[in-house]
C-alpha cells in the first residue's frame, strides 16, 4: 500500500489546483472533439464557399438569367444552364416513374412472408449488392449491354408512336430515355431498402387488427400497411431523387451531352453533372466559372430535396 503514489495527504482543493498533465490532456481532447464537430459544419460552408468563389465571375456576368439561357458558347463567352437544369430534372423524374412502382413492389414482397426466409435473405443481400455496384460500372453496362438491347424496342415505339412528340425522333444511341432507365436501376436499392424498413416498422397491432377483421393479405397491405408506411416510402423516394439528380457517371456516359432541349426523349440531352464531367477538362476562365455556377445550382437542388426527405423521414420515425 505504501507503493501507492497518489498523495492522499493533499486536500481536495490542493490536488485539484495542482498542475496535472492528465487533466490537461483531457481538456485538449474535449476541445479537439468540439473542434471536429464544428468542423463538419465548417466543411459544408467551405464547400459552398469554394463553389461560390470560383463561380463568382459567372454569377456577376449572367446573374439569374443564367438559369434561363440555353446558350453555351465558349468563343463568345455566352453561357446558360437551362438545358442542363431541364435535363437533370427530366431524367430524374423519368427515373422515379420507373423506379418507384418497381421499388415499392419489391419492398412489399420483401416485407411480407411470400417466400421462406432462406430465399428472402439472399434476395435482400442481392438488393444491397445492387447498391454497392459503382455508378461507372452501371454506365459501362449501359453502353455495352443495356442500350444495344433496348434500342430495337425503342425503335419500335418510335415507329408506332412517333406522332407523339415525346417519341418523335429516331432513338439515338446516346439519349435521355435510356439514361433515365439506367438511373432508375441505380436508385432502386435506396427505395427498396427504406420502404421495406418503414413497412416492417408498422405496428404489428395494426396488421393483426386488419387480419382479425377478416381482411386478406392484400387488403391489409393496400389499405393498412402501405398507407401507414407512406411517409417513409415518400422519404425514400425523395432520397432517391436526390441521388438521381446528382448522379454523374452514368449520365455522362449515356446521355449524349447535347446542349439543347429536345421534346423527344429519344434525343441526346445533358444534365448538370454530365456537363461538368465532360467540359471541365478543357474549360478555363469564364467557362470554368459557368460550370461552377451550374454546380452551385445542382447543390441547391439536391440540398432542398434532401432536406425535404429528412423532414419526411423524421416525421415517419416519430410516428413509429
Amino acid at each position: 500500500m505504501t507503493s501507492q503514489t497518489i498523495a492522499k495527504s493533499e486536500t481536495l482543493i490542493e490536488s485539484s489546483q495542482k498542475f496535472n498533465p492528465v487533466r490537461l490532456v483531457d481538456q485538449i481532447f474535449y476541445w479537439l472533439t468540439v473542434a471536429t464537430a464544428l468542423g463538419v459544419g465548417f466543411i459544408l460552408l467551405w464547400i459552398a464557399w469554394s463553389l461560390l468563389s470560383i463561380a463568382f465571375p459567372a454569377i456577376v456576368k449572367f446573374n439569374i438569367g443564367f438559369l434561363f439561357s440555353t446558350s453555351w458558347n465558349p468563343v463568345n463567352d455566352a453561357f446558360g444552364a437551362l438545358p442542363q437544369i431541364a435535363g437533370t430534372i427530366i431524367s430524374a423524374i423519368i427515373a422515379l416513374l420507373f423506379a418507384v412502382p418497381l421499388g415499392v413492389g419489391v419492398a412489399v414482397f420483401l416485407s411480407e412472408n411470400f417466400l421462406p426466409t432462406k430465399v428472402q435473405t439472399p434476395l435482400g443481400l442481392l438488393v444491397e449488392l445492387l447498391a454497392a455496384v459503382p455508378s461507372v460500372v452501371y454506365g459501362m453496362w449501359g453502353i455495352f449491354v443495356f442500350v444495344p438491347f433496348i434500342l430495337p424496342f425503342l425503335q419500335g415505339i418510335h415507329r408506332v408512336f412517333g406522332w407523339i412528340p415525346l417519341f418523335s425522333t429516331p432513338p439515338s444511341t446516346r439519349q435521355m430515355f435510356t439514361t433515365a432507365m439506367v438511373l432508375a436501376i441505380m436508385i432502386l436499392p435506396t427505395i427498396i431498402a427504406i420502404s421495406r424498413d418503414s413497412l416492417l416498422s408498422v405496428a404489428p397491432e395494426l396488421r393483426q387488427g386488419a387480419y382479425g377483421l377478416g381482411a386478406t393479405r392484400w387488403e391489409t397491405l393496400t389499405r393498412v400497411l402501405v398507407p401507414s408506411a407512406l411517409s417513409g416510402i415518400i422519404g425514400s423516394v425523395m432520397l432517391a431523387l436526390g441521388r438521381a439528380l446528382g448522379e454523374t457517371m452514368a449520365a455522362a456516359m449515356l446521355i449524349g451531352n447535347a446542349n439543347r432541349i429536345n421534346i423527344s426523349l429519344f434525343a441526346p440531352a445533358s444534365t448538370i453533372s454530365a456537363m461538368i464531367a465532360n467540359q471541365f477538362g478543357e474549360a478555363s476562365g469564364l467557362q470554368k466559372s459557368a460550370l461552377f455556377y451550374q454546380a452551385l445550382i445542382l447543390m441547391v437542388m439536391t440540398l432542398i430535396v434532401n432536406m425535404l426527405a429528412e423532414v419526411i423521414v423524421n416525421r415517419f420515425q416519430q410516428v413509429e
Partner: peptide
C-alpha cells in the same frame, strides 16, 4: 447528400 461530383469540385 452532396453529389459526389461536387466533392470533386471542392
Amino acid at each position: 447528400g452532396v453529389p459526389s461530383i461536387i466533392a470533386g469540385l471542392f
